[in-house]
Amino acid sequence: MMMDIPVKPADVTFTDAQWKAIWATGKDVLVSAAAGSGKTKVLITRMIEKVLSEHNPIDVDELLVVTFTNAAAAEMRHRMAEALEEAIAVNPDSIHLRRQLSLLNKAQISTLHSFCLNVVRQYAYLIDIDPGFRIADSTEAALLRDDTIGEVLEDAYNADNPEAMYRLADSFTSDRNDQSIETLIDRLYDYSRVHPSPERWLRMIPMQYELDEEVTIDELDFIGPLKT
């Protein structure tokens, strides 16, 4: 059952929409806003209010909070600690509040990557992978990607029917090396990652070039956005 949202005090700087996002209960809440508009602050306040609630308080280690940056995760944990310490100062006899402060280090407040890393490592025995694995840093990842692109191009040149690869090389490379194609593949891969179905999106790209002879340039799907 959804609880009535408290009346917003006059000295509160949250907007009405932010205030509703903080206090809404009994249903899923989606908050969509531009960068720097206060989403993190709203989420932190929502977390704090749930832990400090007088009607139905929760334990801080029941929360799962994932962010995209370590800085945001650290800020959330720090703000939660400050709020708990302030609440304990007001109500020093509260066992619940003191327990929350001790549980804070166990709370799942981290980046999305860190949370997934912990889950995979904890259940590594179920998926047959070495629990001692680690996430490659950006330099290692770049080197692995370069090696993979090199292997893919080598396989393409050595294929039974390499004519298509030769046409691609003639169109996008110089006479010296294949660096232009490697850069193109690298960028195309990054673009594909923002789509929910990257492989399907990549397979759809060539289909845009399969046109009837009667089609004019003004009828192409991408011409409208280009003109605007």
Rank of each mutant, 00 (worst) to 15 (best):
L63T: 08
D61K: 06
I48Y: 01
T40R: 01
L63F: 15
D59C: 03
T69C: 12
N70R: 15
K27F: 02
D28G: 14
V29R: 03
M47E: 08
S53P: 11
L43G: 10
I48L: 05
V29M: 14
K50Q: 15
K39Q: 07
H55V: 08
I48R: 03
K27Y: 02
P57E: 09
A35N: 08
V42Y: 00
V31K: 01
E54G: 02
I48C: 11
I48E: 07
H55T: 14
K41S: 12
E54K: 14
V66F: 09
A33D: 02
D61L: 03
D59I: 00
N70I: 04
V42G: 07
G38Q: 02
T25I: 02
W23Y: 02
T45Q: 10
L63D: 08
V60F: 10
P57V: 08
A33L: 10
D28T: 13
K50E: 15
H55P: 00
D59R: 10
E49D: 03
V60K: 06
N70T: 11
V66E: 05
I48Q: 11
F68Y: 13
K50H: 04
D59G: 00
S32T: 08
G38A: 05
I58Y: 11
T67W: 01
S53W: 02
A33V: 01
T45A: 11
T25M: 07
I58L: 15
P57I: 05
S37N: 07
K41F: 06
I22D: 00
G36Q: 06
T69Q: 11
L43H: 09
V65Q: 07
S37Y: 01
L30S: 13
L64D: 14
D59K: 11
T25S: 13
A34Y: 07
I58G: 10
F68H: 11
M47A: 15
L64K: 12
L52S: 06
T69H: 01
I58D: 05
T45D: 08
T67F: 02
D59N: 14
